[in-house]
Amino acid sequence: MFISRGVGKSFGSVQVLRDVELEIEPGEIVGLVGPNGSGKTTLLNCLSGFLNPDAGTIEYDGTRLDRLADWQVSRMGIRRTFQTASQPMKMSVLEAMLCGAALPIGSAPVRGLFRRKARAAEQAAAVGKALELLDFLSLSHMTEEPAGRLSGGQKKLLSLGVALMTDPKVLLLDEPTAGVNPTLRLTIADRLKDINANGTTLLVIEHDMGFIGRMCERVYVLDKGSVIAACRPDELKDNPRVVEAYLGAPRPVHVATGVSRP
């Protein structure tokens, strides 16, 4: 159970988030939408420990997250991806995948140095898992390519794969399909559903309402840093505040028509 209460965040004099209330049940797929600059990424940064909120609390299963560091949140099984998926230039795709794994022996400089066998066994298991995931994300032909040289869409997929290496309990995804072609977008949607079926809770930021409609049971709408609606995706188009937030004027226009960003 992921709960945020009264979360606020300002940069200087600009208040980017105010009084955000959010509740995510285990196993849910929740969408987070809103116009550009409405504070979605900032909220996700707060939830994942990359930013500490100025006000309010964030809790996961009874543990306060809002004063933890980014890596501590990640180690609790709450992983995130970034809106711009950048990947290292001097690492192969497979190595980048291994970075997402937890390899206690290989990570300890002294212990790892002397326990060669145990280290290799531990890594071999992770390699197996990485290859499986790469296959699942249709990236198996890129295993030995430099991760930083992948196309934008492939990097998005790879970031997803890296985040999945430890079977996270919660995944916070910042526009996982932006810049991905429509067929691959459907694949990602299916993949995310599979991941969810295996017990991972998902929070997905998206601009593509069609995608949201297909994926999510519930959706939060953020505008100028406040939650203006929390409802089922198909109720969005009937909500005048949502329509106004997107179009600036109270006109009856359908927003939930599956129009994607160019």
């Binding site: 560091a69 980014d70 890596w71 290292p88 970075c99």
Partner: peptide, 12 residues
Amino acid sequence: EEPMLAASLGHN
């Protein structure tokens, strides 16, 4: 190369 990515994967 990617300190933010490293942090997001639980590396201190």
